[in-house]
Design a protein around this nucleic acid. Sequence first.
DNA 1: GAACATAGTCCAGTATATAAGACTATGCAA
DNA 2: TTGCATAGTCTTATATACTGGACTATGTTC
Lengths: 271, 271
Amino acid sequence: MAKHVSKTRTARGPRERGVDRVLKLFSYLQENGAPVRLAELPLALDAPKSTIYDLVSILAEAGLLELRGKDSQVYFGKLMHLYGASYLRANDVMARGREMVDALAKETGETSELCIRLRGKQVIVHACPGSRPLRISSEIGSQIPIPWTASGRLMLSHMSLAEIKSILGDEDRTMPNGAPIDIEAFAAECHASKNRPLAMTVGMINSFTQCLAAPITNHDGLIEATICFVLPIDISDEKRGELESRLIEASRSISLAGSRGVAGTGERSMM
Amino acid sequence: MAKHVSKTRTARGPRERGVDRVLKLFSYLQENGAPVRLAELPLALDAPKSTIYDLVSILAEAGLLELRGKDSQVYFGKLMHLYGASYLRANDVMARGREMVDALAKETGETSELCIRLRGKQVIVHACPGSRPLRISSEIGSQIPIPWTASGRLMLSHMSLAEIKSILGDEDRTMPNGAPIDIEAFAAECHASKNRPLAMTVGMINSFTQCLAAPITNHDGLIEATICFVLPIDISDEKRGELESRLIEASRSISLAGSRGVAGTGERSMM
DNA sequence: GAACATAGTCCAGTATATAAGACTATGCAA
DNA sequence: TTGCATAGTCTTATATACTGGACTATGTTC
């Protein structure tokens, strides 16, 4: 009894669920970053032609996708934008995070980013390039494994070892240099960053940048996102000190949980 | 052989497709405008509990929805926002439309809106309230039947009678006062507004506002959206003249089709 | 405590969505 | 023309997603 073979979403049977195909389709479009020919999708997604044509026509009719031109370029549609905007409206945290990124970049001249976590990946949802002659910029929407970043550690700091294991896919368990991570040690690092107002990565992804990150918490005190500076590695200590305190201040001001000393011990009370 | 009972998406069998349930779920969340208790959804959507719990958990895991709090409030998730932002990035027309709305509102002090069409409805995707003491504002995301607006007529101007019939649902075929519309006459009105640089509705939705709308076209010359002013009905002719020309200028500047001299009078024949 | 209400989980049967693949359509080249 | 390649449509079968409904869990009222 109770085999539960396919509890995971990754099950690969002879048939796959429509919803799952849709999720993969969205993900592929996002990854691709630009419209894709409809005829190309079945191959790209390793899915039957009939299924894809069917689903795309449903989604396009609904407005979540859009078909354009005579070669049927497929991409996200207006409805997706509308829903995305609704998300923002309901999430002061995220909306204010975006504004803060713009403000910080303008004020300090440094590249600023707003990051979230999706499963075992960190995603840049908003960024504003700094005014340095040599711009350090990352593509919006680009995803990197959580263990590669300090801000990722912040975002996992409240999770148990088991939870951390469950969200990290196989491909998220190696470092940029290819070395496999030690999960237990990694989880310990995450827990160590709990309640820290700031995290920092030096030269982890590439050798000429460092990253300062601060957590943004929602009303439940959970870390929903991080706000970051991406800096050249040779910045002066003085300058960095300034940026650090500015970032902490920023993250306090947009976080909703009472960072009022209690920090986490609150009654939950839920508005 | 070939009955095709259910070519339409509206088919109501004993079972309904997962994708369709998902679309309705999204639509309901959007309509509701705020998080909804998970337990409430099966009733609201007239769907089986098991199905909804299943789908929501998939979508939440993926990040398209988010579950919050101990009473499981459901709403759009971060991934939706990310995809919506991708849509914007790929659509200069739409992105610039939003900026223009903000600029117009600031410059003229009048309420400005960006509208699109979804099936037979017009949707406000972006708005910026004016600076009048008595603000005229509409909810972002609110939907009204196409025939109620002038900007709706613009958005249908390129469609055949048959197409117009096919996109208008039953509920889109009555006027605000309850009178049914005459489709043929309505289609003629749409066609009449083809290539017009401006459309105008006076007191159609309520008796104290008028609406000026101008089309925004994409690279294919199709009308993707409209940009509008919502004005009090008693505005002076002089002021209105100013706003009209400003709006036309704005729509020209963000439209992508070659408004290069040809500007409406060119080929294209049409009536 | 018992009685009830509200939330959420789990399981097995069957209506049907997915998938395979034949088919049509279009374009391009020899 | 024929041959080949790429796009898209349509139909049938069967693996399974959706469903109904029983079940557990939690909270509230008497």
